[in-house]
Simulated assay, not measured.
Amino acid sequence: MTIEIDDTDRAILRALSRDASLSAGQIGRRLGLSQPATWRRIKRLREAGVISGTRLLLDREKLGFGVTVFLGIKLATKGRISLEDFERAVTAIPEVQTVEHILGLYDYRLRIVARDLSDFERVLRRRIMTLPGAGQVEANVVLSEERLPGPLG
C-alpha cells in the first residue's frame, strides 16, 4: 500500500525516530495538532507499513560489549551450501547483531558485538569460522560511531 506522506507526516516520523516512546498527545503539542489528529496519522502510517515497529536501543558498552566488528564473509562453497542454511546458522549466534547479504568482494556483512578483542576472537574461531560454507573473512573493528540523521533529516 502506497500513501502520500506530507510535511506533517514527516515531522511525526522524525519525532518518533528520535523517541519512539512519545505519545500522540506529546507529538501533537509539538506540531500544533490535536491528540486525535496525530493518533489518526500515526495509525495510518502504521497501517500502510511506513512504521513497521518500535525498537528498544540498548547501550552495548554499559552491557559489557565494548567491541563492535563488521565482518565480511565470502562463502567458500557457494554451490554446495544454500544461502538459507548459512543465514539460519549465522542468525543463531547471539553476538551477531545484523546479517546483510551483499554484492561485492564478500557475500555477507555481519555486525558483531563482543566484550573485548579476545572475546571477538573466540566468537570468530568457534562460531563464525565453523559455519557451513564460511570461507574468507575480513574484520573491521569500529573505533567510534556517530549517529547520522536518517532519510527524514
Rank of each mutant, 00 (worst) to 15 (best):
L56S: 07
L57Y: 14
L57A: 10
L57P: 01
L58S: 04
E61H: 12
E61Y: 05
E61S: 12
E61C: 05
E61M: 08
K62W: 07
K62D: 09
L63D: 01
L63E: 05
L63C: 03
F65N: 06
G66L: 13
V67I: 14
V67W: 03
T68A: 07
F70Q: 11
F70P: 02
L71G: 01
G72M: 07
I73C: 04
I73Y: 01
K74M: 07
K74L: 10
L75P: 02
A76R: 15
A76S: 12
K78V: 12
K78D: 01
K78M: 09
G79V: 06
G79K: 15
R80K: 15
R80A: 13
R80G: 08
S82R: 15
L83I: 09
E84N: 13
E84D: 13
E84T: 15
E84P: 03
E84I: 12
D85W: 04
F86L: 10
E87K: 14
R88G: 12
R88H: 12
A89M: 09
A89G: 07
V90Q: 03
T91E: 09
A92M: 09
A92T: 08
I93A: 03
I93Y: 03
P94H: 03
P94W: 02
P94Q: 05
E95L: 03
E95T: 05
E95R: 05
Q97P: 00
Q97G: 06
T98Q: 08
E100I: 10
E100W: 09
H101Y: 10
H101P: 02
H101M: 12
H101F: 13
H101L: 15
I102R: 13
I102M: 13
I102F: 05
L103Q: 11
L105D: 09
L105Q: 13
Y106Q: 07
D107Q: 09
L110V: 12
L110I: 11
R111G: 06
R111I: 14
I112S: 03
A114Q: 08
A114F: 07
A114E: 04
R115A: 11
D116K: 04
S118H: 08
D119F: 00
R122E: 02
R122H: 11
R122F: 05
V123G: 02
V123C: 04
V123H: 02
L124S: 06
L124W: 07
L124E: 04
R126K: 13
R127G: 00
R127N: 04
R127E: 09
I128F: 02
I128P: 02
I128S: 03
M129G: 00
T130K: 14
P132D: 06
G133L: 07
A134I: 11
A134R: 05
A134H: 04
G135R: 10
Q136P: 00
Q136Y: 08
Q136R: 14
Q136N: 06
Q136G: 00
V137H: 01
V137R: 05
V137Q: 02
E138V: 14
E138M: 15
A139L: 05
A139D: 01
A139W: 00
